[in-house]
Design a protein around this nucleic acid. Structure first.
Lengths: 220, 220
DNA sequence: AGAGTTTGAGAACGATCGTTCGTTCTTAGT
DNA sequence: ACTAAGAACGAACGATCGTTCTCAAACTCT
């Protein structure tokens, strides 16, 4: 996005390929061990190359972390956000977004669960450039949900008094809680529960007061 | 709680005090650096004692982690769960529980945010005794919310078709999302938002359909 | 008071951490 | 084809990791 300093050192084609491979592994490993727990040695071992070889592509570990966050963001955008944008604006988009989130967990796009859920909680307490970048993504994530809600309210698919910030917190929370339980117990059924919760919350909100409540199948 | 092995080695009074102080610091540090990021050296430095001194109280780092989780659990129980139990059963207890959670964040009982939110996401990917202990607490946490919901349904304070597992996921999610944002932006206003969300969700659910919606001030 | 144990300091261990360096091999531009 | 530069290796750096050991001081109990 932003140009690197004054002299952006140019890369060779094979170097670019390697750099991509490194970041791919870095994203994968850091969803399991965290951005701090990610080590150059493990990364090099995972890739079958030397520590020095890895280091040739990054100025420091922090530089590697920043690039890793960026790479994870690109994956998240293409796997979760872009699919959601193909749905109709308003509630359908909101639903598509949540479904895409649950789906990317179920497909194990990141082996250790949602990258940004882990990164946000891990880096939230460590102020610095990496935390700022994570916060930037997290903030954009929240703003996106709020925007979806505002659009849905504007289309009268949600009640006019629906607070976008409040509903965004609810939905973000449901995604977070589902991710946490999914990672902890490795049980996809919590994702179904999450999908049901989101549907119930967004489903029949525009018509109020006189229809029979939605019947939600409740095993147990 | 459980007796230690066959020979529970007896401790001296001063040793018990030191052990408590170590665990206090360990809980504090691990909410900032994580349970894996917690190191004996940092812990000793924080306490002004030697690594060997710390090690006299624990068999291994894993033993220290297990004791740290236990200590954090005791703090969480006395700071969040017990206050909630003094409220009337049903929705009031559910509300008191969520409020106590937001309060313990605001009072910064743990300097790095909710201990178990961080621990669950960090240890979820690292199977082993520590993960099992964290999962045990997490599971008890969820079960407790579900029990509160069941009680509230039994008392007809919530609709009879309210799914305890689904509502527990919603509430747990709201707490989680508030914790994440609070830690990331160090902004207490998200806790107020969380309190409002919980109140709206639990507030006017028993009477349905004909009262005017609650006016929620929304200063962007 | 004396025996026996726990506590805690301090040094040391091998391993790994992030990082630097010098060298060799490969690619890209002329 | 020649050359300048990037790519990757492998060794090494000091620091820190978890862990083990020894030893002196402090406490508990009879």
């Amino acid at each position: 996005m932003a140009e690197r300093a004054v002299h952006a050192r140019q890369r060779r084609a094979d170097g670019e390929r390697t750099r991509t491979a490194i970041l791919d592994a870095a994203v994968r490993l850091s969803t399991v061990d965290g951005l701090e727990g990610l080590s150059i040695g493990n990364l090099a071992k995972d890739l079958g190359m030397s520590k020095g070889g890895v280091y040739a592509h990054f100025d420091s570990k922090q530089d590697l972390q920043l690039a890793t966050v960026e790479a994870a963001g690109a994956i998240f955008r293409s796997e979760v956000i872009e699919p959601a944008l193909t749905a109709d604006p308003g509630v359908p988009q909101l639903l598509a977004f949540c479904d895409a989130y649950f789906d990317h967990l179920e497909r194990r796009v990141f082996p250790g669960g949602c990258f940004f859920a882990g990164a946000a909680l891990e880096m939230g307490t460590h102020r610095g450039p990496v935390q700022e970048k994570v916060a930037e993504f997290h903030s954009g994530f929240i703003q996106l949900i709020r925007e979806f809600v505002r659009t849905a309210v504007g289309l009268q698919q949600l009640p006019p008094d629906e607070d976008p910030a409040a509903l965004a917190l609810e939905l973000n929370g449901t995604l977070l809680a589902a991710d946490t339980s999914f990672v902890m117990y490795d049980d996809p059924s919590v994702l179904d529960l999450g999908r049901r919760v989101v549907r119930r919350r967004l489903g029949r909100t525009e018509a109020r007061g006189n229809e029979t409540p939605a019947k939600i199948s409740n095993p147990r």
